[in-house]
Amino acid sequence: MRINRIAAKKLQTEPKEVDLSLIDSLIKKYKGKNGNLIPILQGIQAIYRYLPESALRKISDETGHKLSDIYGVATFYAQFRLNPVGKNIIKVCHGTACHVQDAKNITTALKEHLKIEDGQTTPDGLFTLESVACLGCCSLAPVMMIGDDTFGKLSGKSAVKVIRDIKKKENN
C-alpha cells in the first residue's frame, strides 16, 4: 500500500487541458450524500488516473467540502495520487511473502532498467514504478502487477523482460 508510494506531494504543474465537465455526473450522483468524499475522489481518479487540483477545487465549490478536508483525505489514503502517472503503472509487491522471496531485487532491477526511482514516471510517459504492500498472490511471490495483469515467480531478469515486451508492443 503505502510503501514508497507515488509521492502525495504535488510535484509537477498540471496539464492545462483538464476537462472538468467529465466530473459533472459524478457530482450529481453523490452531492448531498453522507460519506460521499471518498467515492467522489475514487471517481475522479477513475477518470483522470490522478486527482487534478482544478477538479478538487471544483468539488469543493460544488459539494461544500472544505478544500483542506479534501486534501486531508486525498493524502491520507494510499490509493490517491496528486500527480499524473504513466500509461503503465508497475506495481511491485513488497508484502511479507514477496519480501522474503527477495522483492527488493525486482525493484532494483526495474529501477536500473527504467532509470527512474521508485514512485517516478519515465520521461516518455510509458511507465510509473510503484511499490505496494500486498497484492494477495503470495504463493506466486515475488509478484508484480501491470494494469490488470499479474506476473509471478519473478526474477530481476524476467521482470525486465516483461517491461521490454510491453515497450515493444507500444512501439509497434
Binding site: M1, N36, L37, I38, D69, F76, Y77
Partner: peptide
C-alpha cells in the same frame, strides 16, 4: 459495498467507521 482507499489502520473498527463516513481513517 464500500471500497476502501488503502490504509492499513482502517482495519481498526473506529478508523473503518471514519473511513465509511468519508473522512481520514
Amino acid at each position: 459495498v464500500k471500497e476502501g482507499a488503502g490504509a492499513f489502520v482502517c482495519g481498526e473498527e473506529t478508523a473503518l467507521i471514519a473511513s465509511v463516513e468519508g473522512e481520514r481513517g
